[in-house]
Simulated scan of single mutants.
Amino acid sequence: MDSTWLVLLALALGLAVGAGFVTLLHLAERRGTSAAGVVSPRIPDGIDQVLEALESAGIVLDPSHNVMKASPGAHAMGLVWNNTLVHPEMLALADQVRRSGEPLSRELVLKRGPFGDANVYLSVRVARLGTRFVLLLADDRTESHRLDEVRRDFVANVSHELKTPIASVGLLAEALDAAADEPAQVRRFANRLGSESARLARLTQEIIELSRLQAQDAVAEARPVDIDAVVVAAVEQNRVVAEGNHIEIAIGRRTGAQVLGDEALLTVAVNNLVANAVNYSPPGARVGVGVKVGAGVVEIVVTDQGVGIPEEDQDRVFERFFRVDQARARNTGGTGLGLAIVKHAVQNHGGDIRVWSQPGLGSSFTIRLPDAKAAPATEPLGDTA
């Protein structure tokens, strides 16, 4: 009997100890969960959805500067990598806001990503989010900054380009006055004055044309354009100069190709390519102008046997006022805007332009436009001479 009581007593003590242990484990678990909530507090409700919807960069930092949440734009700009804010400049702004409690705004120039070389220009706004978090918002101003630089360069270039003919006109006017009693000198100065005046008029017209092409409504009303007619018109505008320099212009066969756009703008673009080909070709050379259609693309190809373009300059020939050969450009009256006008005219029609060239062998420029209508080649465009 005594042994039975001893067994029952031992069992009762074991059950009591087990229950107490389970209770302690449960309490410990609750305390651990509570502590985790203090150490890793939740981002305020709705912030996740707002950051996901942002096109700009949005970043939430905890007290240890860990990135709790970042918008897709923040990753795209290279501001966040491996759940860490990449740039110490932005961390310094976050520290300043934590200390002062006041929001602040800054313009920053940073590298794009942790290993990038390209700069990104940001407008940054930093503020507290609740009591523990800091919110950083950044708008990418890189494109705006680039456009500002382009505008400044354009104004500077225009001023420089206009200065020379304007100064020449003034000097020639003085020379005319001084040579009033010398008919031969008057004629010579008058001819030069006419040339400088024509150069100034061309430059002014091309600046106006380029400004119009850069407007968003440059091709406001697109209509079907007969590309064969565009090619013939552009070639005829250069026929007299070509014949005067004993240069042959050969035109390909009719294609019946059509694109949607502005016929006048496309004629200007092709005319500029043909004029360049004639101006940079030696006497007795041949300039070819043809149209190809296929795979939904209309190609206008202008090929010459001229001096060619060095490989290092081929990516720059479409820049405003860029000239491969400054001396030759002055002799031919070039303004340095012709190919820039071609590029913008083609881009406004949803196309692109490509160049192939080899010094001493010549160049080939290809305008590529979306095809509105394709037809088989049947008859010549015009005189192939």
Rank of each mutant, 00 (worst) to 15 (best):
G336V: 10
A327G: 12
V342L: 08
R323W: 00
I341A: 12
G350F: 11
R323H: 09
A345F: 06
L339V: 02
E319D: 15
G338Q: 03
K343Y: 14
R320Y: 03
R320W: 01
V346F: 03
T332H: 14
N331A: 14
R328S: 06
F318K: 02
F321Q: 04
V346W: 00
G350T: 09
H344C: 11
V342G: 04
F322E: 04
G336T: 03
A329Q: 11
F321G: 03
R328V: 01
F322T: 05
A327R: 14
N348T: 10
F322C: 05
H349L: 14
V317N: 03
Q347M: 10
R323G: 05
F318C: 00
A327M: 05
H349I: 01
Q347L: 12
A329W: 06
N331H: 15
G336D: 06
Q347K: 13
A345V: 07
R330E: 15
T335Y: 06
V324C: 04
G334E: 12
I341R: 04
H344E: 15
V346C: 07
N331T: 13
F318A: 09
A327D: 14
V346I: 14
G333V: 09
Q326M: 12
D325Y: 10
V317W: 05
I341Q: 13
N331Q: 15
R330G: 15
F321D: 08
V346L: 01
K343G: 01
G351L: 07
H344I: 10
G336A: 09
V317T: 02
E319L: 11
V342Q: 05
V342N: 02
V346T: 09
Q347I: 09
A327C: 06
E319K: 12
L337D: 08
R328C: 03
L339E: 00
D325I: 00
A327V: 05
G351Q: 11
V342E: 07
G350H: 10
G334F: 04
F322K: 02
A340Q: 04
R323P: 00
H344P: 03
E319N: 10
V324G: 05
G350C: 07
A340S: 11
H349A: 13
H344L: 10
R323M: 11
N331D: 14
G333W: 06
H344R: 15
L337T: 05
Q347V: 11
V324W: 08
D325A: 04
F318D: 02
L339D: 03
D325T: 01
H349K: 11
A340L: 02
V317H: 10
L337F: 04
H349P: 04
Q347N: 13
I341V: 15
F322L: 02
A329E: 13
V324N: 06
G336I: 05
V317C: 07
V346R: 00
L337V: 07
T335I: 00
Q347T: 12
Q347S: 15
T332P: 02
R320E: 09
F321H: 12
T332C: 13
F318I: 02
G350W: 10
N331L: 08
N331V: 03
G338M: 03
Q326H: 14
A327H: 15
A345W: 01
F318M: 08
R330W: 07
R330L: 15
R320M: 08
G351T: 06
E319S: 12
G351F: 08
G333Y: 07
G350E: 11
L339S: 03
V324Q: 06
F321S: 13
V346M: 02
R328L: 13
F322V: 00
R323D: 08
H344T: 14
F322M: 04
